[in-house]
Amino acid sequence: MQISLENPDQPDVIQLIDDLDAYQKPLYPPESHYGIDIAALSAPNVLFAVARDAQGTALGCGAIVVAPEYGELKRMFVRPQNRGQGIAAKVLAFLESEAAARGCTAFMLETGISQPEALAFYARAGYARRGRFGDYPDDPFSVFMQKAP
């Protein structure tokens, strides 16, 4: 498996994002969706990583939006048929390393209450629950987490 920073505006990556949306959208009301689109993922301050197998098939992705105060994890997803292989942990570690190399020392994220697997994954990766941050509203469907240096 190879993980690298890539442009998110690729057909197979767009499909990953569409699959993520198809999974998440039924879980929450529309006003509780905070995913960012392909244009936002292409911004200069966003590190977007893709995990690919030996044949070049996109297996998973994730992004960190690097801000002066912290990096925010966004759009983490691994295809269901590829889960349980440690891909998400490797993508997360890769993104944190790339962001740290650019001076980012704290990482935050928002995920949903209806995703226990994601909550457990982030907790295993050292993220702890915290109060809301940034421009997020006080949303009962949101869980906010942080990993300090």
Rank of each mutant, 00 (worst) to 15 (best):
Y23L: 13
E31F: 07
L109D: 02
C104A: 12
A40W: 06
P140R: 08
M76F: 05
A43E: 11
R83K: 15
G56V: 13
L5F: 03
A51D: 05
P26D: 14
Y70V: 04
G112V: 00
A120K: 14
Q10E: 15
A39H: 07
M108E: 09
R130V: 11
A125M: 13
H33C: 10
T111N: 04
F77T: 01
Q2A: 14
R83Y: 08
T105D: 15
G35K: 01
S32E: 09
Q146E: 15
N82R: 13
A39M: 04
P80M: 09
I113M: 09
Q15P: 08
R132D: 01
V91G: 00
C104N: 10
P137R: 04
A101M: 15
R130L: 10
Q15I: 02
P44Q: 04
R124S: 12
D12F: 01
A99L: 12
Y34Q: 00
G103R: 15
A22T: 13
Q10F: 13
V46K: 07
A118L: 04
P44H: 00
P80N: 12
G103T: 15
G84E: 02
L16F: 10
V78T: 06
L109S: 01
L109K: 07
E69L: 12
I14F: 01
A101R: 14
I3E: 01
A106W: 09
G134A: 09
A49F: 00
V143R: 02
Q85K: 15
D139Y: 09
M108V: 13
G35E: 04
P137K: 11
K25P: 11
G134S: 10
